[in-house]
Simulated scan of single mutants.
Amino acid sequence: MSKVTVPIDMASEQKTILGILSKRQLIYLVAGGGLIYWYVPFIFALIPNPVVGVIASVIGAAPVAAVVLILGFLRKEKFHMDYDKYLLTKLQYKTQLGNWRK
């Protein structure tokens, strides 16, 4: 039986949106962008000085942007998983433990 090497990665997710984003990544970007679009005007309105308001808005949007980038775009290479799937697996670990009898 002969072995043939496939020149492309068959295990990675398909980049269907313009060839650079997957559907999962697009959902993260839309959800994070919507959340930032919702609460940044409140932060900007709290501060009367426009320059300080912009700085406070950027600082307020940074945690959401960091979470979206980590969960949507980074991979845990040791386990060959994206971080969102890795974290879900870690959270479900306790529910999968059972009492084993010999």
Results as ranks from 00 to 15, higher is better:
Lys90Cys: 13
Met10Asn: 02
Lys85Thr: 15
Trp100Gly: 15
Leu87Gly: 02
Lys102Ile: 14
Lys90Ala: 12
Lys76Ala: 15
Arg24Thr: 03
Ala65Gly: 07
His80Lys: 13
Leu74Tyr: 13
Leu69Arg: 01
Gln92Met: 12
Leu18Asn: 02
Tyr28Trp: 02
Thr5Ser: 12
Ala11Thr: 13
Ile43His: 03
Gln92Leu: 05
Val67Glu: 03
Phe44Asp: 03
Gln14Gly: 04
Trp100Pro: 13
Gln92Asp: 11
Leu91Pro: 02
Ile8Tyr: 11
Thr16Tyr: 06
Val4Asn: 03
Ser57Cys: 02
Ser22Asp: 04
Arg101Asp: 14
Tyr86Glu: 10
Ile47Leu: 08
Val30Lys: 01
Val51Gly: 02
Tyr37Asp: 10
Arg101Gln: 15
Lys85Gly: 15
Leu91Cys: 03
Arg101Glu: 15
Lys23Tyr: 13
Ala61Ile: 06
Leu69Lys: 00
Tyr93Phe: 13
Ala45Val: 07
Ile43Asp: 04
Ser2Leu: 12
Trp38Thr: 06
Gln96Pro: 08
Lys102Asn: 15
Ala31Thr: 07
Lys78Met: 12
Thr5Phe: 10
Tyr83Trp: 12
Val40Tyr: 01
Val52Phe: 05
His80Tyr: 09
Val30Ile: 09
Tyr28Val: 00
Trp100His: 15
Ala56Glu: 03
Tyr39Ile: 07
Phe44Arg: 08
Ile43Asn: 10
Glu13Asp: 13
Thr89Ile: 14
Val52Ser: 05
Thr95Ile: 14
Leu88Asp: 14
Gln25Arg: 07
Tyr86Gly: 06
Gly32Arg: 04
Thr89Val: 15
Gly32Pro: 02
Gly53Asn: 05
Ile17His: 01
Gln14Glu: 07
Ile59Asn: 03
Ala65Leu: 08
Trp100Ala: 15
Tyr83Cys: 12
Val6Gln: 14
Trp100Asn: 13
Met10Cys: 12
Gly32Ser: 09
Ile20Asn: 07
Leu35Thr: 05
Leu71Phe: 05
Ile20Gly: 06
Val68Ala: 08
Leu29Lys: 09
Val64Gly: 07
Val68His: 04
Lys23Glu: 09
Ile59Asp: 06
Pro50Gly: 00
Leu21Met: 03
Ile17Asp: 05
Arg24Asn: 00
Lys90Asp: 13
Asn99Thr: 15
Ile36Pro: 05
Gln14Arg: 06
Asp82Val: 14
Tyr37Leu: 10
Ala11Arg: 04
Ala62Val: 08
Gln14Ile: 10
Phe73Leu: 08
Val4Lys: 10
Pro41Ile: 00
Trp100Gln: 14
Phe79Leu: 15
Lys85Gln: 15
Asp9Cys: 01
Ile47Lys: 04
Leu88Thr: 14
Ile20Trp: 09
Leu29His: 01
Lys90Arg: 12
Phe79Pro: 12
Leu91His: 10
Met1Ala: 12
Trp100Asp: 14
Gly53His: 08
Ala62Met: 08
Gly98Thr: 09
Val30Asn: 03
Ser2Val: 11
Pro48Tyr: 00
Trp38Asp: 03
Gly34Asp: 10
Leu46Ala: 08
Gly72Cys: 00
Ala65His: 10
Phe73Asn: 04
Pro48Ala: 00
Ile17Phe: 04
Gln14Lys: 09
Gly34Pro: 06
Pro63Gln: 05
Thr95Met: 15
Pro41Cys: 00
Met81Cys: 08
Ala11Gln: 10
